[in-house]
Design a protein around this nucleic acid. Sequence first.
DNA 1: TTGTAAGCGTTATCAA
DNA 2: TTGATAACGCTTACAA
Lengths: 348, 348
Amino acid sequence: MTLQQTAPRATIADVAREAGVSKATVSRFLNHREKLLTKDIALRVEVAIAALSYSPSPMAQALKRGRSRLIGLVVADVTNPFSVAVLRGAEKACQEAGYLLMLFNLGNDSRRESEAISALSAYQVDGFILNTLGRDAKAAVQAALHGKPVVLVDRRHRGMQADFVSLDNAGAVRLAANHLVEGGYRELLFISEPIKNVSSREEREAAFRSFISDSVSNVADLQGRTFESTAEDPQALDDVLRELRQRAGKRLAGVVSSNAVVTLRVAAAMARLGWQFGSDVGLVGFDDTEWSPYIGPGLSTIEQPTDELGRIAAGCLIERLKGAAPPPRQILLSGRLVPRGSSVHGVT
Amino acid sequence: MTLQQTAPRATIADVAREAGVSKATVSRFLNHREKLLTKDIALRVEVAIAALSYSPSPMAQALKRGRSRLIGLVVADVTNPFSVAVLRGAEKACQEAGYLLMLFNLGNDSRRESEAISALSAYQVDGFILNTLGRDAKAAVQAALHGKPVVLVDRRHRGMQADFVSLDNAGAVRLAANHLVEGGYRELLFISEPIKNVSSREEREAAFRSFISDSVSNVADLQGRTFESTAEDPQALDDVLRELRQRAGKRLAGVVSSNAVVTLRVAAAMARLGWQFGSDVGLVGFDDTEWSPYIGPGLSTIEQPTDELGRIAAGCLIERLKGAAPPPRQILLSGRLVPRGSSVHGVT
DNA sequence: TTGTAAGCGTTATCAA
DNA sequence: TTGATAACGCTTACAA
């Protein structure tokens, strides 16, 4: 009875033997190609490589070179559609550049951030793409990085010198809030997950408040508040929405939800209250998802260029891995308003 | 001006020097712990390790041992919520067992399957979790596997001997179709992405047809057909749905959609037609998503135990990596019906 | 232009 | 019980 009798991978030594040359020659053929190689020797090596269908072991190369062609991706929460979308863009760009992705999902447990980085670091990843809370002890993280290039996506880390790729949060919030105001909504509520220490949430909330205070000169009866929603207490939303309409009185009440997760919570609350988007409460939500068009009268959203974000993040990293060393950049991409029924009053 | 002056990782040699012992001793301390070690030497090593905060290089270990504590995950499409959910379960289980995940996304391009496997294989991954089309040339894939353990999720590969973890498709289809019948729906349509060569789709469609022929003895006016929907021609759905209601006549028309992607397409078509789920067309869709409750009157779904699927898949693999070698298993998990408004006639 | 040999950080074999 | 030493598969001085 034969078990799976798979020939082990051919090594550089095998190729050398097959071609009747030294390992060094094979290595040179692989790495320096045209330089320093006689035509016929090169040919013999090439043939041998093909014959054995040899390809070098990245592990061994990594050990020797100290570079692995691996990129570590740490994600706060693979469940978040935004993270997945970024992941997708990044993965694509990495593959195209011949890098592979090592994935570490924090499952929203920010304490595991340095654990993640150490684990990936141990595997000699050449660089990191971090889409994490950034709450972890900076020192620990920094240490584990060992001076490897990092690009931060969506969330800054205080005091970490690194490329940063993100949505233009301030612009996007203005887009959203302004759209509601133009639709006639006057009593606004910004709903976010817990804001403290998460840069993107802080930026969005701050932008919302500035928008309100900046606009109040033109739109006298405009008001705005913020509410932090948690997964543990979704019901609290019901009360908050009721209060919102109460405050609104005869004016129209509108909500800006700060990501898709929150949007879904709002949708749940609306369902519990028996209210309709648009007529009872206006809504513009961050993150345009595949399902946005089909909830209620269609959800108006701020579409993030997620694919671009992931791609650019990977691009920044790969550029540095190729040796470039520009000063840390901030790359802010604009969001796009996708208006649908949820921000229109008087449509059922 | 000091550049990032990070001390390089400590090596086993550093530890040996620090402790005044040989590398072999340190290695033994790490791998064989209690056996063959004098108390005080063990202590010295332990102290040295702590002092240098040393941890062994998995790369070097992989090179030496031929095992990497890496698991390769190949996903047909990270965009598919089902894949992400499985990914999440698998990633968790792997992390708990001390494995890291290397991710390769096919982006629905099945031709890259063997490319993916070779790439991961080159990095000495210890095993594979495959959630792929399984359409690729079997030989190429098989070769690249090099006899490493594999577990297939959701999709079988013809002639590949491997553990297989999946939803009990037949049972789930019966659950869905039967629910529609009990709700009074009589003219049924099973809508799937292109079926050929994708085992889960084939199984679901076959189960649907058997359900119809099995039930027709009890429910005389029951009819059922199948439609294959493509991303390229979503509009075709409109016609199909119109025909469906036409065929139904006075009977109620119901749809079973075979995954979340298809469900969304149906929702789009319904919106274009101005029809309501439940009253105009009944629906039960595979995959219970976060947004299912909020579309129309709520979408009735078949919930897959995705987390379990991922976790079990990883579990099977890890078991084999620990040396167990049971014959290939098939693990089928049951789906759960989540009834909502879309399968109830007469509710708006 | 090619080959020899050392070394990347481990583990495993053999002596001591 | 511990320590040299030789691999693992590769790259790179240095020699030839």
